[in-house]
Design a protein around this nucleic acid. Structure first.
Lengths: 159, 159
DNA sequence: TGAATCTATTTCGATATCGAAACATCTGAT
DNA sequence: ATCAGATGTTTCGATATCGAAATAGATTCA
């Protein structure tokens, strides 16, 4: 494609934000009929594919703050889509699992959502997708490494 | 790189979210010292590089809702970084421009931010960046087209 | 065992964002 | 010239998210 001059990191980031916003809008519209937000949808999908999880595990995998996870599970519990159980041996932890209703909802919603995404991305060839995947993975790892380095640097400053 | 089976749209979206979150965290940390959030930073950067803009133009280019733009400009005006002027001939529109203080701040901050991003992305070769850019652009356009089609479909339903 | 420390979760207060309604001004058709 | 509809902006009420403090329970070690 376009070969030109060197592509600045800033320009790449701008393009990424724009693409992300567009795909996110698409993804949110795809599930809006369920009354679920994207985060809540992702939490349900995790519970479907990974089974019951603790609050902390949900927070980590969904990349939400603990407080946000509590709020998300509150919302889902209010709608009877999940249940907060107890851990067998550690009474601090709440084990969250899908209710039958929640499982039914997320099974339907997830497959419709997947179809919508496939349909939307149809113009991208297998090679396009693979290239994008690899690039995003590499960029994500690079950024995550920088973030980790920075937070460890700040950790050390407390000494 | 990894060739394997076909890459699902869902998997690609998951990887994209994760990468986006990591880069966004990095970008926010890079400007946190100024007390600016990413949206406000982007608005200042737009004003620097494109000159005075109306609220509507800012909203469109920053992809913010009108209400969010009002709130953003309120924040920036409170800090004396921008000024709300009037349009010469259309009294509905407010023309927003940088103050001297705002210009000074965004010039410094923007160049530091650019350096930070370049440094972080150093592991990505020029080819990596170009491939990522092209893929993101294509995906963004595809998603935007789907979104537009959908909103026009809904527009029509009112008939 | 008991005290200090660590870990899991929730509560609290603050913030950015949004959609819809309200308001002000402009434009175009008659 | 006027009025109906279009356009630009702000206000309002609601929501998701966050970091930090609070709480409760586990673990370690002297």
């Amino acid at each position: 494609m376009s070969e030109q001059k060197a592509l600045s990191a800033t320009r790449l980031w701008l393009v990424m934000m724009k693409a992300y916003d567009a795909v996110r809008t698409f993804a949110e519209d795809s599930i809006v009929g369920t009354g679920l937000g994207l985060s809540d949808f992702i939490v349900l999908e995790m519970l479907l594919h990974k089974g019951p999880l603790s609050m902390t595990q949900i927070a980590e995998k969904a990349r939400l703050a603990n407080a946000s996870t509590t709020a998300a599970i509150d919302r889902l519990e209010r709608r009877n889509l999940v249940r907060r159980g107890f851990h067998a041996t550690d009474r601090r932890v709440r084990v969250v699992e899908l209710t039958d209703e929640g499982e039914k909802l997320i099974r339907c919603t997830f497959s419709a959502h997947s179809r919508d995404l496939e349909e939307m991305m149809r113009p991208l060839s297998a090679a396009d997708r693979q290239a994008l995947h690899d690039g995003l993975k590499k960029l994500g790892q690079t950024a995550a490494a920088s973030n980790k380095a920075k937070s460890q640097r700040q950790e050390g400053e407390k000494a």
